[in-house]
């Protein structure tokens, strides 16, 4: 057995208890949801079953990378881990795969339990779609998990990593929203090019699982109706028409997985526990959120002060000091000063 296989096996054995606990919690969540969510309406039966299992998958895709990779944020731990005779990228692969196995086990058990419950509970749903949903949702989970691993891996501390994950979850949405509203609509007077719906639909980091679930939930619920089209969820139809976005997310996931291993191998051990200076961290996130919020509330008012305070707090948190850098002040000033100037000029 190679060192990698032994370490992978070790990681799996170490995560047994965690997997069992999470499986029990996931089962409780899914079975409670399936029992309480089947509602028999006038001529149509609805369920939020897939949503519950998709929520479990979504949570796991964010939580497991944090648990699997937190050990690499501690320099004392790296003194031990990095002298072991194993290549760093293989060590990272062992953690990445171990996390995937945990997600697979927890999700599969929850999914099968949910499926069986639906089979025995009602014949109103088209459960033949379940296997396809299971496979596609696992792939969507793989995409989100890979992106979450990359984002968390970019941080030098666990707290920064969690914050990066939280902020990146809506970063693309915020960015696209701002571009659409203020660049396309306000500046270019273009409203058709980039409809709002597609931004809201595909921007958040959990979108691949969420949108896939809405499509399949609709298929499962409506197909046995006499006139399925009359019951079709408008969101499901829209997501289906934008199905090419799944390919975009898959490409992002692939790039993130590659980026995760590439950056992991090259990351200096001395950075663990230090300020998270990655370009994929505060450096992008603070101005992205700050500028977007300033553009959303384009008038100089109390919101400008709040955003200014938020950006400043962001930099204090980033630098772990009240002494921030000149470049941070310039970035804040670049957002605030144009608004002050514009207010003065319009007042004149």
């Amino acid at each position: 057995m190679t060192t990698f296989k032994r370490y992978f096996t070790y990681r799996l054995t170490q995560s047994v208890l965690r997997t069992v606990v999470f499986t029990v919690l996931a089962l409780l969540m899914c079975l409670t949801a399936v029992n309480s969510s089947i509602s028999y309406q006038y001529d149509f039966t609805k369920t939020a079953s897939l949503e519950s299992v998709a929520t479990v998958l979504g949570i796991l895709c964010f939580l497991i990378p944090i648990l699997e990779l937190s050990g690499f944020k501690n320099r004392r731990n790296l003194d031990t881990l990095y002298f072991f005779p194993i290549r760093r990228e293989r060590m990272a692969l062992a953690h990445y795969l171990s996390g995937l196995v945990q997600i697979f086990v927890i999700y599969t058990v929850s999914f099968v339990a949910l499926w069986l419950t639906l089979v025995f509970k009602t014949d109103c749903f088209s459960l033949e779609y379940m296997p396809l949903y299971y496979i596609l949702s696992l792939l969507a989970g793989l995409v989100i998990y890979s992106i979450a691993c990359f984002i968390f891996g970019e941080a030098n501390t666990g707290a920064d990593g969690i914050l990066f994950l939280a902020l990146w979850t809506f970063a693309a949405y915020i960015l696209m929203y701002t571009v659409r509203i203020y660049v396309l609509r306000e500046l270019l007077r273009e409203t058709q090019l980039w409809p709002y719906e597609s931004i809201a639909d595909w921007g958040p980091l959990y979108a691949p699982i969420n949108n896939l679930t809405v499509i399949f939930q609709n298929l499962i619920e409506t197909n046995r109706q006499r006139d399925p089209y009359s019951y079709t969820n408008s969101y499901a139809a829209r997501y289906l028409s934008q199905a090419y976005m799944f390919a975009v997310w898959a490409a992002l996931g692939l790039a993130a997985a590659f980026g995760f291993f590439y950056r992991f191998k090259r990351k200096d051990a001395h950075l663990a526990g230090e300020i998270s200076n990655s370009i994929f961290g505060y450096k992008i996130l603070i101005p992205l959120y700050g500028y977007s919020l300033l553009l959303m509330y384009s008038d100089l008012d109390i919101m400008t002060i709040i955003v200014f305070a938020l950006m400043l707090t962001g930099y204090f948190f980033y630098r772990r000091s009240f002494k921030i850098k000149k470049s941070d002040i310039i970035i804040i000033a670049c957002g605030i000063l144009p608004m002050i100037l514009s207010a003065i000029l319009s007042g004149m």
């Binding site: 501690n74 004392r76 003194d79 031990t80 002298f83």
Partner: peptide
């Protein structure tokens, strides 16, 4: 090369 090494840091984790 590291198979023959053992590093005991000042404050092991």
């Amino acid at each position: 090369a590291r198979e023959s090494l053992f590093f005991l840091p000042d404050d092991p984790y």
